[in-house]
Design a protein around this nucleic acid. Structure first.
Length: 559
RNA sequence: GCCCCUAUAGCUCAGUGGAUAGAGCGCUAGCCUCCGGAGCUAGAAGCGCAGGUUCGAGUCCUGCUAGGGGUACCA
């Protein structure tokens, strides 16, 4: 990307200035090229001169001037200026900016992609809600965050796999199956009251009736434990189908569904990993349990792998599952998306990596904060236990998948988020999701209108973008040229919200262009300019569609 | 108690140690002979408190206040 070119120019300029005697010899400090806030300062800026004053034993502005005077020429750079107190500013050339139209076209929908990943593999594991009920809105943030992250990392050069980890091995699953068994008996007219720890939601009734419809009463004659085991499998499959449908409603498609239970099959991953941990002397028997010796690392305590009951603990699943991800399946990198209430678990993950002999940096845990739902100004409490839940399906049906996704993505991860159901459902200018979609629809409309007014695509696809030069056109081109930097920031910080804000910026910039520059002109003298502008509009539409695609929001041709 | 996160405009939120802190909603005043007014322009309005580091702090450090979360052989 162009910013990297400028970084290289600055390094070269310092070297040149030193060779010419304009600067004393000193080691190149680490410096960054930043975006300016105001165009009057150019497009890019660096504070390297101010950082080097002590090294150079010169006034900051004098250092800046010496560097600026030795920047090699570059086609994309129109001006390099040194200004008080010591900034060096770079202005992009109009020719480079207008040339981005051709770059966008050549990228065919992948404009702004970068290569941070270098084609390495990265698994993004997200949602992973217990398969004990429908997907509720608490999981929607996880869903949208994980999916957008996967999109963004793919644009940043990683080969992505999306995985759902099915927590089908623990006591939650057992409780679910017991509940289903009782509801099943109730559905057949038997007395089987629920206890307080069972799932109270009405969906369990529906599930039980469905099972009765398909399987009849055959589980009544079985021993209770056998019936519960059978119902556990049947129920899990049905609930996972619900979850899959809900995810698809939000435009989310998983490449793989991984069963926690499968870790514990005889001779399976767990047996394998605990064997190698024992061989490496990484486990220790203590108080009747078997512990992973994580205190060998930065932790101040060990963690239980096998409880004194003989059952593996939860940490054992984490160990075995991540062993499978890294060692057996060979992912170069793994990202787990977890709610902030798992923060303590997240803290322990690096120790697990070290115990397995893996570099902890290959694993990122993305924590996100809670979502508080509001309706009519009142907070809507979510409680799966009491059955008082708001499902993803309800909200997606009411609000639309695009609005859900966009609104959930316009917050940084680690901030408690208020989600206003009333606001989201409004299909008007109060809803930012519609603001960005409207911009895309407007671009589509301009191209349609052009075709009706003697500007078919064939007339302008070779339009001369060198005719572009109006400030509003250049501003629009500048904004589009930022995309690769936004993708880099979002990918590096694992923070998709940067894309959501960029989408709003880009929409605003386009609307300003639309106001200032008439695209379709009937004047013969302006026909060439119209063609150039139509080409710009088509390029903008492509960039906008790309951004919406990364966010998982549809780009409508009309609305 | 200890640990983590958060605190920016009336509201919901952005803000990679840099130059005059931004956006949407709401409020005020304007803008359609002509490509989509679901749009645009202008205005009022803000970094929780106190120190520190730095040439420079909304951003880094310390303390305080307030809110959220976490501190099991649970999942």
């Amino acid at each position: 990307m162009i910013r990297n070119d400028i970084t290289g120019l600055v390094a070269q300029a310092i070297h040149n200035a030193q060779a010419a005697g304009a600067l004393p010899e000193f080691a190149l400090p680490t410096f960054e090229i930043g975006r300016t806030k105001d165009l009057k300062h150019g497009d890019y800026t660096t504070s390297v001169a101010m950082q080097s004053t002590k090294l150079a034993r010169m006034a900051p502005l004098a250092v800046a001037q010496a560097i600026a005077a030795h920047v090699p020429p570059h086609a994309a750079v129109a001006a390099v200026t040194a200004v008080p107190p010591g900034f060096i500013n770079f202005q992009l050339s109009d020719a480079w900016l207008t040339g981005q139209v051709a770059e966008i076209e050549a990228a065919s929908g992948r404009y702004g992609d970068i290569d941070l990943g270098g084609g390495k593999t990265c698994q993004v594991e997200f949602i992973s809600a217990n398969p004990t009920g429908p997907l509720h809105m608490g999981s929607a943030r996880n869903a949208v965050l994980g999916d957008a992250l996967a999109n963004i990392l793919a644009a940043a050069g990683w080969r992505i796999q999306r995985e759902y980890y099915v927590n089908d091995a623990g006591t939650q699953m057992r409780t679910f199956a017991e509940t289903l068994y009782r509801r099943y008996r109730q559905a057949l007219g038997h007395d089987a009251p629920l206890e307080s720890h069972h799932y109270q939601g009405t969906y369990m009734h529906d599930l039980a009736r469905e099972v009765v419809g398909e399987q009849g009463d055959r589980f009544l004659s079985m021993p209770e434990d056998d019936a519960i085991a059978a119902l556990s499998d049947i129920g899990r499959v049905k609930v996972l189908a619900w979850i899959r449908a809900s995810a698809e409603k939000l435009h989310i498609y998983f490449d793989n569904w991984y069963s926690e239970k499968s870790l514990y099959e005889p001779g399976g991953v767990f047996d394998h990993v605990i064997g190698s941990l024992r061989a490496a002397n990484m486990t220790e028997a203590k108080d009747g349990a078997e512990w992973l010796r994580t205190s060998l690392f930065d932790s101040d305590r060990d963690e239980v792998l096998v409880r004194s009951s003989g059952q593996p603990g939860y940490y054992a699943s984490d160990v075995a599952y991540h062993y499978d991800k890294f060692v057996l399946r060979g992912f170069d990198r793994v990202i787990d998306v977890w709610a902030v209430d798992h923060q303590n678990q997240a803290r322990r993950m690096p120790y697990l990596m070290q115990a397995l002999g893996l570099d902890p940096k290959r694993l990122d845990i993305v924590l996100y904060d809670l979502v508080r739902l509001y309706r009519d100004g009142q907070e809507v409490k979510l409680s799966k236990r009491s059955g008082d839940i708001i499902t993803v399906d309800e909200v997606a049906d009411e609000v639309g998948a695009d609005a859900v996704r966009f609104l959930l993505l316009t917050r940084s991860n680690q901030a408690v988020m208020d989600f206003d159901l009333n606001l989201a459902v409004q299909q008007n200018d109060q809803n930012p999701a519609f603001y960005v979609q409207y911009a895309h629809a407007r671009m589509a409309s301009i191209l349609r209108t052009a075709a009706e007014r003697d500007f078919p695509a064939a007339a302008w696809t070779a339009g001369d973008f060198g005719l572009l030069g109006h400030p509003a056109e250049l501003t629009l081109l500048r904004k589009m040229a930022e995309l690769s930097e936004v993708i880099e920031k979002a990918a590096t910080q694992l923070a998709p919200h940067h894309l959501a804000f960029y989408a709003q910026d880009l929409a605003g910039t386009f609307h300003a262009f639309y106001r200032d520059c008439r695209v379709i002109s009937a004047e013969p003298a302006e026909r060439e300019l119209s063609c150039a502008r139509l080409r710009l509009v088509a390029a903008t539409k492509a960039v906008f569609a790309r951004v919406l695609d990364l966010l998982g929001v549809t780009a409508p041709e009309s609305m």
